[in-house]
Write a protein that binds this DNA or RNA. Structure first.
Lengths: 213, 213
DNA sequence: AAATGTGAAAATATTCACAGCA
DNA sequence: TGCTGTGAATATTTTCACATTT
C-alpha cells in the first residue's frame, strides 16, 4: 500500500484529479498526459506526476496515462468504490439546502438521517428524509451506520454538536458553521466557509484598488 | 503599506483571525495573547505573530494584543470597513439557497442582482431580489456596481459564465460549480466545493479502516 | 519522439529561540 | 516577569532536469 507520510496537500488534490478524469472519460478520451491534465487544472505537469508517484506507477513512458486506469486507481485510493453515509445535523435554511443538494448523491454520498433541535422542524419531511430530534442524536446513531457528520447548526452550537458526533464514534466532519472547531486527533474536519473565501478576496481587491491609485 | 510579497497562505488565515477577534470582542475581552489565539484556533502562537508581523507591530510586549485594535487593523487590511456588492449567477436550488443565506449580509456582503438562464425562473422573486435573464448579464452589469461574482450554475456552464463576468470587468469570483476554472491573471477565484472535501476525508477513513484490519 | 518517474535543487512555509521592551 | 517581533534554523512543498522506457 501507499506509504504513510503522504503530504496532506497531495491528498487534497487527488479529488480534483479524479473529477477531471471523470470528465475526460465521459468525453471519450482514452489516454492523457500529465501535461494535458496540468493544462486543464492550471498546475504544473511535474506536480501531477509527483503526486501520483506517491501511490504507484500508473503511466506509460512516451504515452501518458490510461484514462480508465488512472480514474479507477484514484477511485480506489480515495475509497469512492463504495458509498458513504452522512448524517446531517442542523435543518434550518442551510441544512435544508444541503439535504436537497444533488451533488452528494451523484458521488456516492448519501444522507441517511437529519437532526434538528427545533421542535417545529422535527418530524417534517425534507426530500425523502424525516427530520429527527437532536435530543435523540446519540440514541439514533446507535442504530445507524454513519461515516461522516455534516454540521449546519448555528456557530454557537457547532462545537458542542461536533463533540457529540465524535463521542458517538464519527471520525470525519464536514462543518458549514462559521467557526473554527477543536477536534481530537484522528478526527478529520473540513470547513465549508464561503465568507472566509470572500474575505480573502476582498483583501486582494482592496490592495489592487490601492495600487492603481 | 504592507509589502507586496505576502504569502497567500497568510492572507487566507487573516479572515480566520478576524472572525475569532470578533467573537472575543463580543465576549468583552480587551487583551489577548498570541498563545490564546493559537489555542482557540489550533495553530502555533509563533505563526500568528509571524503572520501579523507582515502588516505591522500591533502587540505590546509583555502584554499581548488589544482586541479592539487588532480587530480594527484586520478589518482595514481585509477591506471589511466597507460593504461589497455581489452578483449571483445561477438561481437553481443552490443559487436560491445562497440568495437566502444570511451569513453574507452579516459581514457586509450584499447580493445586488441575480441572474438565471431559465425563463421559468426569470422574473420571480427570491428574497428581495428579482431574478434577471442571463442573456442580459453584460447589459445589466453596466448599470450595477459589482465587486464579486458568485457562480452557482451547472458545472458545464461555469467556465463560460465566469468568462463573461471577467470580460465585464469583475476581478473576483466565488465559484460553487464543481469544476476547475481557468481564469486570467489578476482575477481571484475561490472554490466552494464540499464534494472535494468529503472525498479527501474518505481517503483518510479508508486508510484508517485498513490500518485497523 | 514523447512522456513518465524521481532524485536533487530551489522555493516556500513553519517553528524555534531569544533580544528587547512594557 | 511575560509576551512580542523577528532573524535563523527546520521542515515542507514545488519545480527542475534527466535517465529510462515505450
Amino acid at each position: 500500500m501507499a506509504p504513510l507520510d503522504i503530504p496532506e496537500v497531495v491528498i487534497d488534490r487527488l479529488p480534483v484529479y479524479y473529477r477531471l478524469l471523470s470528465r475526460i472519460r465521459a468525453e471519450g478520451e482514452t489516454v492523457v498526459s500529465s501535461h494535458e491534465l496540468g493544462e486543464a487544472l492550471g498546475v504544473t505537469p511535474a506536480q501531477i506526476r509527483k503526486d501520483l508517484s506517491y501511490f504507484g506507477r500508473f503511466g506509460k513512458q512516451g504515452r501518458g496515462y490510461s484514462v480508465d486506469r488512472l480514474h479507477e486507481e484514484l477511485r480506489l485510493i480515495l475509497g469512492l468504490h463504495r458509498s458513504w453515509n452522512l448524517v446531517l445535523v442542523g435543518m434550518g435554511r442551510l441544512g435544508q439546502a444541503i439535504a436537497s443538494y444533488r451533488g452528494f448523491d451523484a458521488e456516492g454520498m448519501q444522507i441517511v438521517a437529519a437532526f434538528d433541535a427545533d421542535s417545529t422542524i422535527v418530524g417534517t419531511n425534507v426530500g425523502r428524509i424525516v427530520v429527527r430530534d437532536s435530543a435523540q442524536l446519540e440514541r439514533d446513531l446507535k442504530d445507524l451506520t454513519v461515516d461522516i457528520g455534516v454540521v449546519a447548526v448555528p456557530a454557537e452550537h457547532a462545537q458542542e454538536v461536533i463533540e457529540r458526533l465524535v463521542k458517538a464514534g464519527i471520525k470525519a466532519i464536514l462543518n458549514y458553521a462559521p467557526v473554527a472547531i477543536q477536534a481530537p486527533p484522528g478526527v478529520e474536519i473540513r470547513q465549508v466557509d464561503p465568507v472566509l473565501q470572500l474575505q480573502s478576496m476582498t483583501y486582494h481587491l482592496t490592495r489592487n484598488a490601492r495600487a492603481r491609485t
